[in-house]
């Protein structure tokens, strides 16, 4: 079974995966990364200041695959100057 590494880029830095996981194929690795983004996004949204997370999957053979989640906050009201 191929071995996949999942590097995480988030507000605390870049975490290079040194352990990895044995998975049948890249599709399964992407599903695993989506699951990880789901629970990491929950924490990211609660904490202040964080606006994005990326997971880059390496398998050593095919090109890496990147999954990213980002949050955008847009203030839609018109800016009213004081006074």
């Amino acid at each position: 079974m191929p071995h996949y590494y999942f590097d995480v880029h988030d507000k605390d830095g870049i975490f290079h995966d040194e352990v990895g996981l044995d998975l049948p194929d890249m599709e399964t690795a992407i599903t695993e990364a989506r699951r990880a983004l789901a629970d990491m996004t929950k924490e990211m949204l609660i904490g202040a200041g964080a606006e994005g997370i990326q997971i880059i999957i390496h398998d050593g053979a095919n090109g890496p695959v990147r999954l990213s989640v980002s949050l955008e906050t847009t203030r839609l009201g018109e800016h009213r100057p004081d006074g």
């Binding site: 995966d17 695993e32 789901a38």
Partner: peptide
Amino acid sequence: GLSTVHVNRTLQQMRA
């Protein structure tokens, strides 16, 4: 109740 990747990232943070 966390994904394996999230556990791995968290362990790396603890080591760092």
